[in-house]
């Protein structure tokens, strides 16, 4: 199911959250949350990931802090994978968050 990130904002770590808000830092650089960039429905990249849980041509499950991201679609391929980011290419249909 699609998750609204802003809805869970209050639940993120208290002190760090406040500091980030006070100094107007980008939140993802301070907090341990994934940053997802989606380019249309053909490319998706996840930063701050924790590895791959499952990979088939129909879905890619990426572990992140506090849960996982499931990308569903057709002919999915992992274009690159490094310690910091994972790139997914293919025809993307769903991006799901789950705890």
């Amino acid at each position: 199911m699609a998750v609204d990130i802003s809805g869970e904002k209050r639940g993120l770590g208290g002190a760090k959250e406040k500091i980030a808000e006070f100094f107007e830092f980008p939140r993802d650089s301070i907090l341990d949350v994934p940053r997802i960039v989606v380019m249309g429905n053909v490319e998706l990249s996840v930063e701050n990931h924790l590895g791959i849980i499952g990979y088939t041509s129909g879905s890619v499950e990426i572990a992140v802090s506090r849960g996982k991201i499931t990308v569903r679609g057709k002919d999915l391929a992992i274009s690159s994978i490094t310690k910091t980011s994972i790139g997914v290419q293919g025809l993307i249909e769903h991006v799901d968050f789950s705890a």
Binding site: G51, T56, S57, S79, I81
Partner: peptide, 27 residues
């Protein structure tokens, strides 16, 4: 479990790219 291989590879600093699924058991 090929996913384990992928995770192990990137954590030990090996760069992988253009991974694609062939069948149930192999990429």
């Amino acid at each position: 479990v090929v996913e384990a291989f992928i995770n192990e590879a990137y954590t030990s600093g090996v760069e992988l790219w253009d991974l694609s699924r062939i069948d149930e058991r192999s990429i």
